[in-house]
Amino acid sequence: MIPDKIKLEIYTPDRKVFSEEIDSVRLPGADGYFGVFPGHTPYISVLGIGEIKVETAGESRSFATTGGLAEVLPSGIAVLAESCEVASDIDVERAQSAEERARTRLQEGRKTWDVQRAHVALAKAINRMKIASL
């Protein structure tokens, strides 16, 4: 029988961000978003920059993540995120200045390494702002 709840745990290198029984979660897989419901098959995925959306009892909560890994097992879901913030905790001003910084770097565009880093920084900043404004 398939249980109607599944345990979700979200960790970052410096703390445990989330640990609850949930109805479902949508995660930003490296190749696109995927949803996990109770009874999912064992699954490991690389996560990209994006939104983690948790559904519990008709209520949904959003987190901004900059990527990591997720492991889905019948016993629960473990998300290992590089960083993960609840929408309400996002520092919008910091994200904005990060966006500006990334944009100016992209305009200057010198070495390929810098350009790549600036693109990633830009994507992170935009993602944070998007989730904060949800």
């Binding site: 897989g29 490296a30 190749d31 064992p42 699954y43 490991i44 995925s45 690389v46 890994l69 290992l80």
Partner: peptide, 22 residues
């Protein structure tokens, strides 16, 4: 541990590339 086959997204290789340096 479940000895059944895992599904990897995108691949076992990419998972290890992410997980091991981390």
């Amino acid at each position: 541990y479940i000895p059944a086959e895992y599904f990897y997204e995108p691949s076992a290789q990419r998972i290890l590339d992410e997980a091991i340096p981390r």
